[in-house]
Every structure is written in C-alpha cells, then in structure tokens.
Design a protein around this nucleic acid. Structure first.
Lengths: 267, 267
DNA sequence: CGACACCTTGAAGAGGTTCAAGAAATGTGG
DNA sequence: CCACATTTCTTGAACCTCTTCAAGGTGTCG
C-alpha cells in the first residue's frame, strides 16, 4: 500500500487499547518523585530504538532535557526559529506546514504520539516549517547536540536517527505520488487509511477515528480545497463506505477504500 | 525563494565554468597511479563536509568503496533492492521515481553531480524508489555501514550526513508546496529556476541550460501531463521570458520567472 | 442564547486532461 | 551517408475534475 507516513510496524505495542492511551506513568514506591523517563515510557518503542542494554537505556534517558506542554493552537516552533532540538510527541496531535513568501500555505504532515518532529531544522540550523498543536500536547525536548554526541556512543541510537530521517523522506515520497497523480477521492481514501493505520498501531480502533484537523487542513495536506474534501466525504457516505458525523469517522468498508486507492487490475 | 532542492550555496566552486565540469583529476608525480579520491575531487565541497583535518580527509577517502558507471537509461538501484550504500554522483544526471501498485509513476527528484542518492533505503534496508541515469553517469559507492562507523569518529561527517538528510526533507516540503498549491506555469517556473540555480552553483550559466529529461518526466515531477508542460513552455516563449529549442532553454527574463513563482504583492 | 468557526451543498467557471494529428529531432540499419 | 522507424514535442478541440462563489446548516463555546 501507499506509504504515506511513518508507518513502521510496531507489533510490540499493547494491542487494542481503545482509550486515549496517554503514556502510562509508573507510580512506584516513591510516590512523590514520579519519574517520566524514556526507560519507562510506553511510547519508547515508537520514538526510541529497541534492544538497548540497561546502561544504554540510562544514557538515553539523559536525552530528554525537558518536557514541554503545547496548548491547542499554539506553535511548538515556527519557520525561522533557531533549531536546537528534536521533539518526541508524548501526547497530542500536531500539524507541520510551510508557507511561501506570497502567503500560500501547505500542510506537510500530521504527527501523533511517538513521532518525532523538527528534522527540517537540522540542515540550516533554523526551522523551515511551523509545528502547531491541533490538541493540547506534550513533547519531549531532545537537544540535537546531545543526540549527536550520544549517537557516537550508542550505535542503536545512531541507526535510529538515520531511520527516522529516512522514513520521513520515504513518507514524503509517498505524498508526492499522492499529490502528483491521484484524484480527490483517491487522495482522501489514502489519507484516511494511513491515519487509521497509524492509530491502530497505537492501540486505537481499526475502523473508527476522530479527526483532529479541519477539512481545510486536510485539504491543504492533500492539495485540495475544503469543499472538495467535504464532497469526497459525502460521496463515501453515499456509497456506504463510511459514516461521517463531523470529525467522527467510521469506516464500514475498508476494502472499498483500499480499492479506491489501488484500483484492482481489470475490474 | 521556494527551496525545491538541495540548494546549499556552494560559493567555493570554481565560478562560471561552462564546460561539462567533470571532476578534475590530479595528475601528480606518479602519472601511473591516478588517484581519484575525495581528498582531491573537486566535488568534495558538494558531497563531503568542509574543514576536515588531513587525517580526517584520509579517513574519508576510505568511504568510497568503488566507483560505478551507469549508462544512460540504466538503473542505479530499483524499488525493492537491498540497501547497502549511498551514492555520490560524480558525473551525469539522475532521476528518482516511485511507482504505486497500480502502475502510477511519480518522479520524486532530479539529481546532479555532487548530490547524494539512496537515502530512501535506510529505513527499511531496501530501496523504495528507482534511480535511473538520464545521461551516462559515474557514482561513488559509499557503503552505509562504513559511513555509520566513520561517523562515530569524524564528527563533521556525522553532521554532514544529518544535514544531507534534513536537506532532502526540506526539499520535499518545497515540492509538496509546489504540488499542493501552485498552478502549472508557476510549477514550471519554480522548477526551471531551481534547476538553473543548482547548475549555476556548479559553474554553469545562470541563464542557459540543457534539460536532461523529457517533457513527460518534468510533468511527472510537477504533477502535470506532458502536454501541459509543453504548453507552459510555449506560453513562456510567447511572453518573451525564455527561448526554447527542444531541450535547450535560455532564460531571457529571470525576474519575470521569479514573479510567476512569487507574484509581487499588489501588482 | 448568540456569536463564531466549521461543514455541506449547489451552480457556474477555470484550469488541466484527454484524444488526436502532425512536426521535429534522434537513432538505426543498410 | 541517407532512408526509415521511433521517440519526443507541439498544438488544437472537447471534455472533465476541481475550484470558486454563494448560501444555508450544524456544532461549539463563552
């Protein structure tokens, strides 16, 4: 299937946890000092490498300099900001977007818990896109110089950083294919399948999802106007492929959706 | 301006060298052993980090396991191939493209001397796109495990790898903006400006260029049909912005082209 | 409850595609 | 080196998808 997004399979996640799945905190013996570290974060499998030794795990814990809350609608960073850190999303949902000089805006991605944002800033030491929280969020701030330093010691971390960046490149290749060659309904179908797949990997339903973004934001991401997105939704509902109530979507016929993205040969 | 591509400024390159600029070889004392190494390759500033110590330079030389010639039309790697190496282009011109299951194809980029391709393969240890030479080419094969190993010792190399990947991410963001929000003529104008800029950084003319790809390949990259590309070219010629004879393009009014990409506010 | 943001739907219009034909360049084999 | 086949490019006309403009509906939050 079209690989639109960071879609590494994460079979190790607790399956089918339909709740909002915030990172569980370990309320240990010492109730006063609640330690939220990578080593006991249930998103570790998503944003950190696997198979680390206990010592390595401890080093990795030092990567997260701090945590930062971002209110819905607020920006984590914006175009032109100095680049210092990558951010691992603990909770919440983000969009990244670029703007051209004449004011055109393009959503370049939607990111959820366990995904890493900020990679755009590395090349020029300043961010080239905006990251905006679509719901109240919390991120782990990982100073990039620490990442680079620790990478020289922990090989798995080095690999991991490379893979995260490569994955983003591959994701964007998929978006280019979508934007360059698909029709409106195909785009929306691919988008929804990708979203639901990533949510499923995080323990949510395979068929139900709540969109965190507006039709306009979906449209920007897919290179469509909001009216076109709305019409495509309506078409899917008419065809019995899904149920839509505002931002609540329930996919009734996932196979039909897949057929829209990849038409079966010689129907 | 819209950053469509690996467009780091490389002022250190020999300016205005209108010849084909193959990497100059150092014909030293020992004429029998012509050594083509990073340390004496004039593309070093493009594909390798700057400011290395002599020892580091020597280590870097060991990165290139071999060189490989790729005939025009041949594939350097294809979707599904095992990933082992990154490739630095010494001479020639490539396109990379992805194909979906139902046969749709999307050109994801055009690469020229000094640029690095293969980054897509890191995440899954297999390539997710095809790299095809558009003219006879030669590449430096850099095994990725060597790169990772050497990165732990040569900090500048580590930085460089990160920057190359980040630059590719930023480039693709720019392409998404182009595909998502620009009209046909804007897309072609942005594409030509980007091409000529990169060529200029390599010592070629600011105003003249020879396209190495067909209208169809340009169209695929820009999300347009070849006829639309052709019509846009004709429009530019009619408007006196450029002269076009087949693949030979001469930009007469670069400012007019820029205005097409970024319309001046309140004309 | 009213203001506001968001979503849906219709109708007209524009930009790009498709189909088709011919011209120009390139490559091939005799 | 020329003739012929092939690929590539250009241009026209009809068509189609998506956009634009407009109006009304729905949901949410102070």
């Amino acid at each position: 299937m079209l690989n639109l997004v960071n879609s590494e399979h994460i079979d190790s996640l607790t399956p089918s946890n339909p709740s909002a799945a915030p990172p569980r905190q370990t309320y240990g013996v010492n109730a006063g000092a609640i330690k939220i570290a990578c080593s006991n974060c249930n998103l570790r499998e998503l944003c950190m490498p696997l198979g680390l030794s206990p010592e390595e795990l401890e080093q990795i814990d030092g990567l997260v300099a701090s945590r930062r809350r971002v209110k819905r609608g607020a920006q984590l960073f914006r175009q032109g900001d100095a680049f210092t850190s990558l951010y691992a999303i603990r909770t919440g949902f983000f969009k990244t977007c670029v703007a051209s000089e004449d004011g055109r805006e393009q959503v370049t991605g939607f990111q959820m818990a366990g995904e890493v944002i900020g990679l755009d800033g590395i090349v020029s030491d300043s961010h080239s896109c905006n990251a905006i929280a679509l719901e109240d969020a919390e991120v782990c701030v990982m100073p990039f110089d620490r990442i680079e330093e620790l990478s020289t010691q922990v090989h798995a971390l080095q690999r991991h950083v490379h893979k995260i960046m490569s994955r983003e490149i591959v994701r964007e290749n998929g978006v280019m294919l979508l934007l360059g060659s698909m029709r409106a309904e195909e785009r929306l179908a691919a988008f929804l399948l990708n979203l639901v797949q990533r949510l499923h990997a995080r323990g949510f339903s395979q068929s139900e999802l709540v969109l965190r973004m507006t039709r306009e934001e979906i449209g920007s991401y897919l290179g469509l106007k909001l009216e076109t997105v709305s019409r495509a939704f309506s078409k899917f509902v008419d065809d019995g492929i899904m149920e839509v109530r505002q931002r609540h979507v329930r996919i009734v016929k996932p196979d039909a959706l897949r057929d829209i993205v990849n038409p079966p040969p010689c129907v």
